[in-house]
Write a protein that binds this DNA or RNA. Sequence first.
DNA 1: GTTTCTGATGGTACTCAGTTCCACTGACAG
DNA 2: CTGTCAGTGGAACTGAGTACCATCAGAAAC
Lengths: 228, 228
Amino acid sequence: MPSTDASVEQRLRTAALELFAEQGYDATTVEAIAARAGVGRTTFFRTFDSKEAAVFPDHELVLEDVAARLRAAGPGGSRAAVVEAAMLVLSHYLADGEVARTRYRLTRTIPALRQREIAGLHRYQRLFGDFLNGPGADLVGAAPDADARQLRAEVAAAAIVTTHNHVLRRWLRHDLDDPSPVLERALDDVVDAIAVRPAEQRAAVLVVRSRADLDAALPEIRRVLGDP
Amino acid sequence: MPSTDASVEQRLRTAALELFAEQGYDATTVEAIAARAGVGRTTFFRTFDSKEAAVFPDHELVLEDVAARLRAAGPGGSRAAVVEAAMLVLSHYLADGEVARTRYRLTRTIPALRQREIAGLHRYQRLFGDFLNGPGADLVGAAPDADARQLRAEVAAAAIVTTHNHVLRRWLRHDLDDPSPVLERALDDVVDAIAVRPAEQRAAVLVVRSRADLDAALPEIRRVLGDP
DNA sequence: GTTTCTGATGGTACTCAGTTCCACTGACAG
DNA sequence: CTGTCAGTGGAACTGAGTACCATCAGAAAC
């Protein structure tokens, strides 16, 4: 048994990435990956569900982290929770950035990997959507009915995940040195525009000074705003 | 050669759906599908890229339709184009609704099909996103820079596709009888809230009658609005 | 020290999706 | 009648993924 210094999983991961880079994805057999890692083919499939899985991070782990951060949100804390949860995902990618970039190169090229990548992203969207539609979240505001609320939650989740992916992709392409503050700003903007429905939650108050004093004007203001 | 009444592709499609319903997806071999359709295994793989493909519609066709509608958008017509394009997708699903519902049942159950479904949806998102980021579209408004514009386009595309999927899913679940008007209203709402950035493109004008006439007031109004 | 249990491993054999190649058939034109 | 051509079926192959079993190292029990 050669080189037990790294874990079997790690050895398999690096062997897979190396061979995919050298020979291409299709031309690389699972047997070859296992051989380079110094283990049997059986061990490969005991470690990973499929050949593709050797390329991707353990989404379960990240998803659990994100779910925990969302669960920790108190009343009124939905916005912060969502933003921080998205940045948590980013930080997981940045944690081993070289691997992330290698994976990006592969997923752009190989359809099978691309498909799995997209499906993976969708799980985050589901998670965010379920949270935003849940009773603990107040980001999407009051909706006329339960279905409208769910739609808004799904749209907001899609917007958040899309924003995250956009910023991440820029970093993967070396368009960006420090993506975290960029993501934070972008999420702030997006959440402003999307999650909260401006027409419902904001009221613009325009003050016009006149000779009449406030008390005299108040009843009229009340009438105009349709005070219930 | 038995039953040449329907096209080979159609016979294979129905055979596949029948067998998946009877025996389950994994338990059904391609050979069995081909046999029921009265053709050879070779012909199956000449017709479809994979076993999964027999379940899904020809996305290429729909994508081309949608792309054509988007291309046809004139200046100022981005909003209508996007809404109509999304409704075009819906109408394709409704065209043979029974198959769509059967497929929905399968995609919810079988992971392999689910993954392909999600990947398929992503192609529509790409298409919408590219259009909204293109030079012909004016839905996302003026952005500080090219990257911000692209982000907005991607977010808007995600919102549109998510909305479409939400309404479609409701119809697939028999939550809805006539989904088209529902989708149209929902898209209107979503596009209002998302694509156009209210703070940038809308200016509220409040008119206060005073004794001074308009000409006298105009310079002052110009100054306040920061007329360039 | 010996036994025994346990967990991880490697090997073998199998199924089946997907590919490649070739032979056949029927239609149609010359 | 002959050549061509498109569509088809069959046979053989590769490789992913699964199932089963034998093995072995180490820890625990006696």
